[in-house]
Write a protein that binds this DNA or RNA. Sequence first.
RNA 1: CGGGGCGUAGUGUAACGGCUAGCACGAGUCCUUUGGGAGGAUUUAUUCCGGGUUCGAAUCCCGGCGCCCCGACCA
Length: 416
Amino acid sequence: MFQSRYLSFARKEAPKDEETKNAQLLVRAGFVDKLMAGVYSYLPLGLRVLRNIETVVREEMNELGAHEILMPMLHPKSIWETTGGWSSIDVLFKIQSRTEKEYALGQSEEEVVTPLLMSRVNTYKDLPVAVYQIHWKFRDELRAKSGLLRGREFLMKDMYSFHENQDDFEKFYMRAKESYLKIFNRLGLVAKVTEASGGSFSQKISYEFMVLTDAGEDDILYCPSCDFCVNVEITKQKEGELCPKCSEVLQQARASEVGNVFDLGQKYGKDFNLGFIDHENKKQYPIMGCYGIGISRLMGVIAETRHDEKGLIWPKNIAPFRVHIIALVGQDDAQNKIIMEQTIRLHDNLQAEGIEVLCDDRMHVSPGQKFAESDLMGIPYRLVISQKTGDKIEVKKRNEQEINMVDFSEIIQYVS
RNA sequence: CGGGGCGUAGUGUAACGGCUAGCACGAGUCCUUUGGGAGGAUUUAUUCCGGGUUCGAAUCCCGGCGCCCCGACCA
């Protein structure tokens, strides 16, 4: 009954060959399954988390005025040759068909989105415009590692904006930066904004959004009392030196990059020779921006940073379910009947209010096992119904110790 | 790609070159049990793949494939 069979993905023991917490816990709790290094299946619980992260990101992107689209993952070789990426990008996955024609698997979508939009943009009046997608990306990493933190196939939100001049671009760029901070905040993460190199595509400074975790693979230097933060790759400053902004002592830490924003300049418009007519009736190339957020990596980072010795601890808004009902059914048929009636009533009431609920009504499974699996999954509210609870419900928050007895009539308010 | 470690039921592991590859958990069946991963009975394996050495290989050797960790790499 209900969806208790989600539980059957959980495992008692962690895979011995994973060291990072996100990989151990997500596999143990049955959120993901590894097909090969850096490539995962998302199981029912994991997919719900992924979708919830997507929703937060999607809402903020829409708020920025960007339009959601979906672009292909399979790309013709020609567009990558046009921009030089075919021969210069090491991580580009290249594949060959049976007719020996070559393709790339998308590791980014500038090559697709630029012709797509600029063939439809005629004049400055059509600008600015921004589109985004949430889709799978492929990168031929020499070494996939750390569970979901660095995969060869991963889910990413990528947005692209097109502007008539640098000024307009920068206005949007700053709005996007604020939007990003809001997203990470909503996901329960503290993201530090670093200035980092823009890579080979841009000489300009870009921003990286970093979450502190030892499982990350960037080293950042940050100020504990102001917002100064820089990737050690591009600075000569060292830990222990004073913050250039506020003179506090700088600290160094490991971090994972959960998002970035780039100034692409006019490269892609020029490469594809696709421009627009400006105010002076002259052909002009658009200034483009690129804005990424690693959706699946975020899931890994949240798991990596929010757990205890018993398991995962999801923030309310991205947890796979808001509440986990545990029905402790035993041998007494008369009692079981009452417990199940209460459970069904509670389940239906919660669902009617739009509260997502997972229900463990398994017979012949010990209470201890049910509690242990519940803790492992990290659902924010645990609601127990048993012989002992009578006409109340026992409620425990995953991240707190207290247990409260709550009336049926007050439960919805309690978990909202 | 360089270095290191590893590969045995679904999971975690044991086995000196030598008996029918042992144990625990999970899963299936039966019985008992029900507030913190319950007990008994029973079932559950091509020892990653391919060669080689040997009377005999999970074990030793060669090659491949795969996984983890460090580094490099990660527009």
